[in-house]
Amino acid sequence: MRNDTSRSEEGATGPVRTAVRTIGRVVGDLIAISLWVLFLTLAFLATGWPRWAFYALLLVGVGVYVAVTAAWID
């Protein structure tokens, strides 16, 4: 009985809120990374920099983004 109550309370608040927050974070990540890819593409179109630099900056940018935003999340 006690078990049931705690489970339904969890269902109404905890997991739902966590799920919404997680989805929000994932969507935020996707938008931020999309803009980064678009920005890099336009920059490399305009400059003609080499291919390796594109992929290096692409991944370094994602790494930096995750490292910086990880501090905000918790």
């Binding site: 992929y55 692409l58 991944l59 994602v62 990880a70």
Partner: peptide
């Protein structure tokens, strides 16, 4: 997140 983000970035590129 880095792996997923990196994979998504490569996919989008």
């Amino acid at each position: 997140r880095t792996v997923a983000g990196g994979g998504y970035a490569l996919g989008m590129a």
